[in-house]
Design a protein around this nucleic acid. Structure first.
Lengths: 134, 134
DNA sequence: CTAACGTACAACCAAATGGTTTCACGACTT
DNA sequence: AAGTCGTGAAACCATTTGGTTGTACGTTAG
């Protein structure tokens, strides 16, 4: 239990992943993430950077907040926004799992090629275990 | 130019990233991706796995196709779907850039702590260069 | 105290999403 | 030739999204 803090973050699951990827699917929000990865910014400081209204930017920040990609910290009348890398790492991790799945397939194909039992190669349904939503 | 094929794929830019992340923001589509990473499947074979209509699954496949996360290959009357890892790797790469940005910040903070010029530490606007949409 | 600032939130709107049902068409089966 | 299978695409609907404007409220500055 000692190294708990150093463990890679548990990958995103289900609804969480939905929200995180949906949040990432907007250029303005990705830009806000970039800015707040490089240092804290108040919401209005962020808003000055974009051509849309303050309220619009505030909504984007809210989206990022709801899915945990940023955190806000009140500082007097200002609210400082800071990106949460761990959360980004979680999304990253989910994609890494996908890439691993692919490597697994390549491994199986190599096995097939190496083996002599190439007779049943026309079978079309190698994958099972319906794991919807993760 | 020889090692071109081994280069990491150029990271997603702008609208592409929007589409890819939006496509990833749905559990059913992520599941389809997983299945087709493990081997080809026809659209109807995929459709059997989910509780929604065939047309709905077909639409999900279309979304994944439009943003390049899968490719389809006609085989007689069937259309085989296969995930494209490179595209997933591109999304992965964009997130990796984010994590790198964060490491850069940590680096700057370390420098600050190490240096004697801690006088101007109260300045609030370290980041510039508006790079919207990427 | 008053004014200005930073934030929050509600109401509204156009466009996109995720689902449905239905129809059409080419490709195999018999 | 007729029927079934796999696919594509249109029309429709409810919900969500990304933007707007306007209002309200606590905090800081004059």
């Amino acid at each position: 239990m000692v190294s708990r803090l150093l463990d890679p973050p548990a990958p995103l699951a289900g609804t969480d992943a939905d929200a995180v990827f949906r949040a990432l699917a907007d250029g303005t929000r990705r830009d806000i993430l970039r800015r707040t990865l490089g240092g804290e910014h108040s919401i209005s400081a962020l808003a000055e950077r974009y051509e849309m209204s303050f309220a619009a930017v505030q909504k984007h920040v809210a989206v990022l907040d709801r899915c945990g990609l940023i955190e806000k910290q009140r500082f007097g009348k200002e609210q400082l926004v800071r990106a949460r890398v761990e959360r980004i790492a979680q999304a990253s991790g989910l994609l890494a799992e996908f890439e691993q799945l692919w490597r697994d397939r390549v491994g199986r194909i190599d096995l097939l090629i190496a083996s002599d039992y190439s007779a049943e190669a026309s079978d079309h349904s190698p994958n099972d275990e319906p794991t919807p939503n993760t």
